[in-house]
Amino acid sequence: MPGYLIRSVILEGADALLRSHGQRPAVLARRAGLPPAALGDPDQRVPAAAVLRFFALASDAAGLPDFGLRLARNARLAALIGPLWVLLRNARNVRQLCDELVDNFDLYSDAALVGLTPLPGGRAALLSWSTTQGQELQELQMAEFSLAVLAAELRVRLGRDWQPQAVLFRHARPAGTLHLHRAVFGDDLRFNQDVNALLLDGDTLDTPLTPRSAAARALASRLVRIEEQRESPHAVAHNAEAVIRALMPYAPCTLAAVAEALGVAPRTLQLHLQREGTAFARLRDAVRADLAGKFLHDSRLGAAEIGEILGYADPTSFSRAFRRWNGNALRRMRRPGTKP
């Protein structure tokens, strides 16, 4: 289901959880911009931005800093992404499963991005999740929910005792105990990081899986390609944004680098983006603005650290860009208790 709508099955369990903590789920749904009926009907199409708002509102109202993790305990990737899961279940190994998810996630929704970024010097990689530009800044609960669902799917394939090598969160360490975080992800929890991601070692990625059959995989591939024909008019910009988000914390995010990752010439990428009504510099700027807002809202990284992640040579350049994006000085946008 391409676009910025997702199935309301992602809300399953929220009604009971909130009621058990003295809340009125329908009221919170309306405040978030969701139809209250979506809490009980898993097949409604609802705005992804409203779901992000609902997760954040629900966490605050119920006093549950681990709301996303609690909701993820009963969520299944198959129910969330529908037909795309048929393709994943026929992957030959974990690396191919991750690649298929990355390559086809936009068939589920354009409101988030999944990436698999190899780490230098080894076979390990980061399986990352992030909202796209234009969504809510408050992605903390959804980030933890999404990583927990991905970890649960891998645990089904790799055994109940499997844990990722580490888990990275862009947001600051939540208040209170991390008991549920450790139960879901293991002990290596890293906050205030560049990305939201599961760190998967090479042995995990190379673990063979048992696909149903070659015929089943071929059928699943055809089904996915049929869906892909109903391509978004902004498909190239969406793919370029995914690469920009993956590259930005680790390497110079130039037009040439992004074009190389997409397998096209820089001029070709420019022309495609122009046809879709944008340009590379504008797209990169929009991603920087989006990430800056998320880091400032959810992490405790200092402005200089955020500017460095976003590719600015000095804090002054970052501050100038931030004022251009938001019309306010950076120091006025910081959450209380964070570094200037």
Results as ranks from 00 to 15, higher is better:
190 R>M: 09
134 G>N: 04
113 L>P: 00
105 F>E: 11
62 A>T: 12
212 R>E: 15
208 P>L: 08
131 T>I: 10
288 R>M: 15
254 T>Y: 03
2 P>K: 08
327 G>A: 14
322 F>M: 06
327 G>V: 12
306 I>H: 00
194 D>V: 00
185 F>S: 05
130 S>P: 03
51 V>N: 06
195 V>R: 09
143 A>H: 00
83 P>W: 11
327 G>K: 07
266 P>C: 10
131 T>A: 15
61 A>V: 07
154 L>H: 08
262 L>Y: 02
83 P>L: 05
79 A>G: 12
86 V>W: 05
124 A>I: 06
249 P>R: 01
263 G>N: 06
311 G>W: 07
164 P>C: 06
244 I>K: 05
211 P>W: 05
19 R>Y: 01
161 D>M: 04
339 K>G: 00
39 L>W: 09
212 R>V: 15
340 P>E: 11
129 W>L: 13
184 V>F: 01
201 D>E: 13
331 R>V: 14
222 R>M: 08
194 D>P: 00
292 A>G: 12
41 D>W: 08
296 L>A: 09
26 A>I: 02
89 R>V: 14
10 I>S: 03
212 R>L: 13
331 R>T: 14
21 H>P: 02
124 A>K: 03
319 S>Q: 15
279 A>W: 01
262 L>W: 08
330 L>V: 06
246 A>F: 02
274 Q>W: 12
209 L>E: 13
198 L>K: 02
94 V>E: 11
136 E>G: 02
271 L>Y: 10
299 S>M: 01
78 A>T: 13
291 L>S: 03
170 R>I: 04
4 Y>D: 11
229 Q>Y: 14
166 A>M: 11
124 A>Y: 00
208 P>D: 12
106 D>A: 05
210 T>Q: 14
282 R>P: 01
267 R>C: 01
330 L>P: 00
37 A>W: 00
